[in-house]
Design a protein around this nucleic acid. Sequence first.
DNA 1: GAGTATGACATAGCAGCGCTATGTTATGGC
DNA 2: GCCATAACATAGCGCTGCTATGTCATACTC
Lengths: 195, 195
Amino acid sequence: MRTLLVERAARMLADREPVTLRALVEGTGASTMAVYTHFGGMPGLWSAVRQEGFTRLAGRLAAVPRTADPVHDLVALGVAYARNALDAPELYRAMFDARADLADALAADATFDRLVDAVARARDEGRLSPATDPRALATQYWAAGHGLVSLVVQGVLPAGGLAPLATRTAVALLTAAGDEPDRCRASVERAWAAG
Amino acid sequence: MRTLLVERAARMLADREPVTLRALVEGTGASTMAVYTHFGGMPGLWSAVRQEGFTRLAGRLAAVPRTADPVHDLVALGVAYARNALDAPELYRAMFDARADLADALAADATFDRLVDAVARARDEGRLSPATDPRALATQYWAAGHGLVSLVVQGVLPAGGLAPLATRTAVALLTAAGDEPDRCRASVERAWAAG
DNA sequence: GAGTATGACATAGCAGCGCTATGTTATGGC
DNA sequence: GCCATAACATAGCGCTGCTATGTCATACTC
C-alpha cells in the first residue's frame, strides 16, 4: 500500500496532475486515512516521494559502468544525473523543493558518496592532483550540475544548452583539480557522447 | 497599496510567517479583494514578490563598485549575490520557487546582463581569452553560484562552507577562461575578503 | 452642474484543501 | 475464546484561494 501510493504520487507528478490527498487515494480503493496510517500526513508522503526520487537516482548512478578512465566515469555520473532529472522534471523539482527538508532523504547521501568515490578514484589513479579533497570537489561538481539542471528544469535555460555548458564547467573544475586539459576535454566529451 | 502589500508579503516571508490571503491583508485595513484588484490573485502577488526580490538583487549588484580589477569586480558581483540570498533566504527561495514561472521576472534579465557585462569587460581588458563567450561564461558562473547558494539556503551545506567552495569554483571557471591562475586567485580572494 | 461609467473597496459564501475525531473491521498473541 | 492492535471508512472541522454581489468615490461626458 505504501509503495502503491508513493508510485501513484510519482506518476501524478509526472503527469502534471496536482497531488492532493483526495485525488491521490481516488481509484486506489483506499480512503484518505491510508495516507495518515502509512505516512502520518501529506508531509510524510512528500518525504517518501523524495526518497523514491533519490532511490531512482541512485539506481541510475549505480547503472553507470566503470571503465578504465576515471574522469570519463565521473562525468558519466553527471550525465546520468542530468538525464534522470530531465526524464522526470517534476519529480526532480519535488526532490529539491524549497520547503523540503533534504535531511530526511537518506538516499541523497548514498548518491553523493558515489560521486565522492568517483573523485577519489580519479585522484588515486593520478588524473587529479594528490592534494585534491574529494568531498570538496564533489560538492563543487554537484552544486554546479544542480544549478545548471535546475535552471533547465525551470525553463530558464533551453535543454539543448545543458550539454555544452556542463561540458565547459566540468572541464574547468577538473583541469583546475590537476587533470591535463586536452585529455580531460576528451574524457568529458566522450562521456557526453556516450550518454 | 500595491507596494504596501508586496512589502508586507516580503516581510512576512522574512519572518517565516505563512503568506496567506487573509493573513496578508490583516492589519492593512484592506480587504481580501485588494489582492485581486491589484494582482489578480495570489499567483499575481507571488509574481510581484519575485519581481521585488529581483529588484532588490539588482540594487545590490548596482551598488558593487567598479575597480581597476575586472576579475575582482566579477567575483564581487557573486559575493553580493550570495549575501543578498543569505540575508533574505525565504525571499530567495520564493524567487526560485519550483512552481514559479521565472519568465515573468523581467528584473532577472537586468541582473544577468550585469553579469554578462562584467565578463565581457574582463575579456576586453585582456584578463580572459579573446575567445571567451560572455553569455556562456556568465551562465556557467551564475548556475554554479546559484547551485551553491541554493544548497546553503536549503541547509544542505553549512553557510561557512560557501566562501571556500565558491572561491575554488570561481578560480576554476576563470582560469579555464584564460586568466592567469595566481593573479586570478588573488583577485577572487580579495573580493571575498572585501565582501 | 447632473448623469453616469469605472475602478477600488467590503461582505458573504463557495469548493477545495489537509487533517482529525469517531466508528468499524480484520488480524495476531495469550 | 478473548482482546489488543493496526488498518480501514465516514463525517466534519478550520483553513485556503477565489468569486458573486453590493457599495462608494472618483472622474469623465454632455
